[in-house]
Design a protein around this nucleic acid. Structure first.
Lengths: 183, 183
DNA sequence: TCACTCTTAGGACGGTCGTCCTAAAGGGGG
DNA sequence: CCCCCTTTAGGACGACCGTCCTAAGAGTGA
């Protein structure tokens, strides 16, 4: 893996664990074990590396959604795969929240120019979920149902992070899967 | 209003709008129109003022919950008052998210010592909602239902902040009120 | 071997941060 | 009127931030 990719990977993780603003150039450089000068060779500004991190997350998300589509032909099962992320990534979510939700919230408060790109990560999930609901025959309110599932995942992530309660996550997942079954 | 109270009020608002870390001593002092030296007379450290802001929010929340209890004797109607905060405070929530959710998320990433106190704000709502569900006759799963309502509000706040969509909020509120009616 | 480009290292810069100090202004009681 | 305690102002401090510069090392093709 090239230096640039290592920087993006380290920044991605540090932005997630400590937040964008709280993560310094020095911290990223130290994580990759390169000098700040070398860092500057690859990225001129902090905003530049944020843009690279977001682009990397977009690509990773696209890849994940594609793999879910491969994993199952049943749209309801695909939606369930999304619903269960909060269980699959339980430890990270309890420790740091949802990577998408916390980043968009932070960038909103910073009035950061890259905010729309971060929000686009939400749109990726929103559109994909909408497609699955459409495939289930809910053409007219597919988007509303997609947003409902997103609402669930963001609420669960925020409270799982606040309370660190694994059982709560399990209960809410069961509840939403029951709701999905009635659709 | 004394200087100290003005400082807490200004810091409260700035922490909400720009985040705790992004808000500097200088910014708060400027908002209150006092010198940084005067600021230091009232609060020695940034953590001290954060503690004061959280304490102030706890008191304000207690007062709000008390006023809701006065406003209606019906537990279901009281819960509805909570559910509708996302509408009542719509503009602020779309611009800055939920004050409790975004603060706890930020303090978690900063590993800040005051994190438990911020989480206690959630507990305030959680316990109050639990009491209302208990009064409705759901003793055994009152807490789970309270957490479900909190999940809703956090999810709605996060996505309202991301997409700025007022209609989405309305739809989710209607959905949860319908759920509440079936309880 | 030599020249050239890509990559790396390490320090300098101006600015802002949280913190702290000192001195003066304000204001009520003797 | 003067003393004393509270409150205010304003600047100094060391540390760290993002940014930028310069020079040396690494690798490649002629």
């Amino acid at each position: 893996m090239g230096t640039r990719e290592q920087i993006v990977a380290a920044a991605d993780r540090l932005f997630y664990e400590h937040g964008f603003e709280h993560t310094s150039f020095a911290a990223i450089a130290e994580a990759v074990r390169i000098s700040r000068g070398n860092f500057y060779y690859h990225f001129k500004t902090k905003d530049e590396i944020l843009a690279a991190v977001i682009a990397s997350r977009v690509e990773a998300t696209r890849e994940m959604l594609r793999s879910w589509a491969d994993e199952s032909g049943d749209p309801a099962e695909r939606i369930r795969l999304f619903i269960r992320i909060v269980v699959t990534n339980g430890p990270d979510i309890r420790a740091f929240g949802c990577p998408v939700g916390t980043l968009t919230a932070e960038l909103a408060k910073l009035r950061h120019p890259s905010r729309p790109e971060a929000t686009a990560l939400f749109t990726l999930f929103r559109d994909w979920l909408g497609e699955q609901f459409t495939a289930l025959g809910h053409e007219t309110d597919a988007d509303a149902m997609a947003m409902h599932v997103l609402t669930f995942s963001q609420g669960v992530a925020t409270l799982a992070n606040a309370f660190g309660d694994e059982d709560f996550v399990r209960r809410e997942v069961d509840r939403l899967e029951a709701w999905l079954a009635t659709c």
